[in-house]
Design a protein around this nucleic acid. Sequence first.
DNA 1: ACCACCTCCTGATCGC
DNA 2: TGCGATCAGGAGGTGG
Length: 269
Amino acid sequence: MPELPEVRTVASVLKKELINKKITDVKIIYSKIISKDSLDINLLINKTLKDITTIGKYLLFHFDKYILISHLRMEGKYFIKTQDDSFEKHEHIIFNFEDNISLRYHDTRRFGRMTLIKKVDLHKVNSLKKLAPEPFTINKEDFYQRINKKDVSIKTLLLDQTIINGLGNIYANEVLYVSKINPSRKGKDITLKEASTIIDSAIDILNLAIKEGGTTIKSYTSSLGVIGNYQQYLKVHKKENEPCTFCHMPIKKIKINGRSTYYCPKCQK
DNA sequence: ACCACCTCCTGATCGC
DNA sequence: TGCGATCAGGAGGTGG
């Protein structure tokens, strides 16, 4: 369930539970979660977790000399449990920590990936190198320049993490709705002013989502969900045929580049 | 270089 | 009800 706000929420909750704890054991149940170019995950045994940070949708677990990079993709989740030799269906990687804590990586569709790297190699990681800035720090002029020549829909461009980092399908839909921009319009037809509006909307929406994600995390006495409660704020995503909050026309659903896209045909020009 | 499409997976839901 | 088809908050790889 990972877009930028959910990933940040996961990071902050995990940090509270795991910071300064030492890993005592690692179990790899489904090894494809670990990318081919990863160092051996067992190197983390006896290492102490120093910090957890995020870059867009990536989670970074920092150790003295190593960083574990984790991307949840569609359905990756972390659960905190007490140690137990058994594991549930869809738990693929288990990190046991001191104090009887067990961190479980759970991923129904198995799309998520983890890579262990040396800290000194962080700047060499291809997937991270290509990322654009997050909406909070992006330069509007640079963003405009990146979309300016593209013969691709603005919806597709907002999902491209090298154009802007952190939006997924839900927030891309929401951002364009609030910005009153039709998702099918080509990047090259978006004006600087519209590009600026997109960034402002993205910041507002993500900030609210981060705030809500932080307040709506489920109790994690035995497990840690990543479930935010931002659904209640969604205005277009999954709202096909429901009235537009501005003009009351029914929201339409179409496919753009294979992804479900919701918009108001009247308000989004 | 750019861009549309395929692929990786499982499970819930849709439609006939 | 049964069952195959489609869909789901992502992104890397491929090939035109």
